[in-house]
Computed example of a mutant assay.
Amino acid sequence: MALRKIALVGVGKIAIDQHIPSLAKSDDWELAAAVSRHHQVEGVPNYKSMDEMLGAHPEIEVVSLCMPPVPRFEYARAAIAAGRHVMLEKPPGATLSEVYALEALARDAGVTLYATWHSRKAAQVATAKAWLMGKAIERFTVTWKEDVRKWHPNQDWVFEPGGMGIFDPGINALSIVTEILPDPIHLTGAILKFPANRDTPIAADLDFYHPHGATVSAQMNWDHSGADIWDIEAVCKEGVLKLEKGGGVLLIDGTEQPGAIGQLDGEYPQLYADMAALVSSGASEVDLRPMLHVSDALTLGKRQQVSAFEW
């Protein structure tokens, strides 16, 4: 079967590290063009204008958008208007309203829209979800700490309005939480720590309501020194589950379960396989639950000012 042609829009760190290698190994896709103001992809036509790329390549069925969330709506709207299927890097947009608008546009145009959550594809997330089903959860804790200087070096947009700050990585945790918890939760309170010279928070403490009385909380920090900590722990009457390394490692009552792999390994190839399946079936997938928690945190959160942040 011939490979479907896809264009990559926004050639930054995540595209270079994950999207391009995943597409190169894919049995479904051929990377046929790229759009970027600053970088080029070897071996394919490169453009600085989205409209120019769309006009030059009517054979490209799908556009994968990897730029920061604030400008993404206009690019997605243009692709949908041109009859192309659209794949959105997380978070799917700068606001909930614009993603709902894209969902409606895609539905009316008869094209696929896929709001991806790569952390849900981590090796042990599905196993964790299955284990938690039917368990009596007493305490559920998320600890998500990393160094923004490592993952977004000198990228000021993450601290600008719409950049989401700590919720850029923290939404990865929330995507796993909303996938594996058997019952829906909602935010009841938050403390958001804003650097004195920045517009988005660098740390957050979150508390949630759980319908069966479990204590659910999250601690997130983007100014963390040392090794990254991407852990989720569920203390249940039947035992203790712990996901480590962003869902790549699973422990049950302290015993590591088979199938562990590194953070991000296998996640993006699975996203592109899922996109191929969605396009083939004519379906869309737009789950905004992780983004709802972020919106609620920014609504309910108590703001605390902390020291200025410098790169």
Rank of each mutant, 00 (worst) to 15 (best):
G239Y: 11
A81T: 12
P153R: 06
S36C: 07
E59L: 06
K150G: 03
L250Y: 07
I202N: 04
V240T: 15
A297W: 01
E233V: 14
H186G: 10
H38W: 08
P92S: 11
Y272H: 11
Q304T: 10
A76H: 09
I14P: 00
S49V: 06
K242T: 15
C236R: 02
N221K: 13
G226S: 12
L8D: 00
I232S: 03
S284K: 01
L96F: 04
G43Q: 08
A109T: 03
W230C: 06
T95W: 07
R198F: 03
V35P: 01
G165V: 04
S295F: 09
L241I: 15
Y100G: 00
I261F: 09
E146M: 14
V125M: 07
S295G: 08
M50H: 07
K13F: 09
S280T: 10
R120E: 10
H85V: 07
A104E: 14
K135F: 04
V70S: 01
E42L: 10
A204Y: 07
M50A: 00
F73L: 10
S281E: 14
E138K: 14
A277V: 08
S307Y: 01
F167I: 10
A128Q: 06
A32H: 01
G10N: 02
Q270K: 14
T95L: 09
W157N: 04
I137Y: 03
W144Y: 11
V11R: 00
Y75P: 00
A122W: 05
Q263W: 11
F140V: 01
T127D: 12
I232V: 13
A260T: 12
S217N: 14
M164D: 05
A76M: 08
R289L: 14
G259Y: 12
A81L: 13
P169W: 02
E179F: 01
A203T: 05
V63I: 15
W151Y: 13
K25I: 02
Y100I: 04
D51N: 11
R120Y: 04
A94Q: 12
R77E: 15
